[in-house]
Amino acid sequence: MAQWMTGEVVENYAWNNELFSLRVKVPEPFEFIAGQFVRLGLEEGGQRFQRAYSLVNGPQDPTLDFLVNRVHDGEFSPRLHDLRPGQAIQVSQPPTGFFTLNEVPEGESLWLIATGTGIGPYLSMLTTQIPYERFARIHLIHAVRYANDLAYQPQILDWVAKHPGQLSYQPVVSREDAIGALRGRIPALILEGKLEAALNDTLNNNAQVMLCGNPDMIRDARQVLADKGLPKNLRRKPGNVTVEHYW
């Protein structure tokens, strides 16, 4: 059964007007596996508002990091958006979830494909040595609507520089042209071969793909990948595509 601890907001960093990173200090060590999530909670008027968010920080980092997009008519994200350093927030424990690399079979390449805030668990994974030890090639693909939604780019580019020839980063922007980015939707870019061409790699049965984010993207990408011979990964029947629906 989940329990709650009280943390303290140490930073609320705005990537743009709607997208922000909420960083939280908790009073005791917080163990988790990269890719897992917790619930954040706020009490107001005798009622607890809560929602699940993936941990963006690495397991070795004592400051918890959450990437959040404000939904103006939502009950919870506008409250998080308004939090300031020093304010209290509740964090559920223990962390949970199976969208982790230990659920992913062996392969030559690892394709980490996300839309929006779905990039969060991948960033946590990439702070660890696990992906670099297991896969010869790692591709981080982040699809957003506008270029200013591409969060954590300085950190990502630093990782790319530290792992030349092994880690690559491909942004995808759907609603405007952006330097260095592909334009379009992930499923179409896979279907048309544009994603493979941009990364100079092949989505074949030696590839492991993780999909996280928009359910429409996941549904359509799964179908395109299945048509290419990459089935969904299940514990009872290992495959090539591991998924996490983000809302």
Rank of each mutant, 00 (worst) to 15 (best):
Q3F: 06
T6W: 07
E8N: 02
V10E: 11
Y13N: 04
W15C: 06
L19Y: 13
R23Y: 02
R23C: 11
V24T: 07
P27N: 07
P27Q: 03
E28L: 12
P29T: 03
F30G: 03
E31S: 13
F32K: 01
I33D: 11
Q36D: 02
R39S: 02
G41M: 10
G41V: 00
G46T: 06
Q47H: 10
R48S: 03
R48P: 04
Q50I: 00
R51V: 05
A52W: 00
Y53A: 11
Y53M: 09
S54A: 09
L55D: 06
L55M: 15
V56P: 00
V56M: 08
N57A: 15
G58A: 11
G58K: 01
P59W: 15
Q60F: 05
D65P: 00
D73S: 13
G74A: 03
E75A: 15
P78Y: 05
L80A: 05
R84M: 14
R84D: 04
P85D: 05
Q87R: 04
S92R: 00
Q93W: 15
P95M: 10
P95A: 15
T100G: 07
L101F: 07
N102E: 15
E103G: 00
E103R: 15
E106N: 14
S109T: 15
L110G: 03
L110N: 07
W111C: 05
W111H: 08
W111F: 10
I113N: 01
T115V: 07
T115Q: 13
T115G: 12
T117N: 08
T117H: 02
G118T: 00
P121V: 00
L123Q: 08
L126W: 07
I130K: 12
P131L: 09
E133S: 14
R134Q: 12
R134C: 12
F135M: 05
I138G: 09
I138W: 07
H139Q: 12
H139N: 11
A143S: 15
R145L: 11
Y146A: 12
Y146S: 09
N148K: 02
N148Y: 05
L150E: 02
L150A: 03
A151M: 08
Q153T: 11
Q155G: 02
I156R: 12
D158Y: 07
W159K: 14
V160D: 08
A161Y: 02
H163F: 14
H163K: 05
P164W: 14
Q166V: 13
S168I: 01
Q170G: 06
Q170E: 08
V173M: 14
V173Q: 10
D177T: 11
A178T: 09
A181S: 15
G184E: 06
I186C: 12
I186T: 03
A188T: 14
I190N: 01
L191H: 13
E192I: 00
G193R: 01
E196C: 02
A198Y: 03
A198K: 13
A198R: 12
L199H: 02
D201F: 11
T202L: 14
L203S: 03
A207F: 06
V209G: 08
M210L: 15
N214Q: 01
D216P: 00
I218W: 09
I218K: 01
D220Y: 13
A221N: 00
R222N: 13
Q223W: 08
Q223L: 14
A226W: 12
G229T: 04
P231D: 06
P231N: 12
L234T: 11
R235W: 09
K237M: 10
P238S: 05
P238T: 08
V241A: 11
V243Y: 02
V243P: 00
E244T: 01
H245V: 09
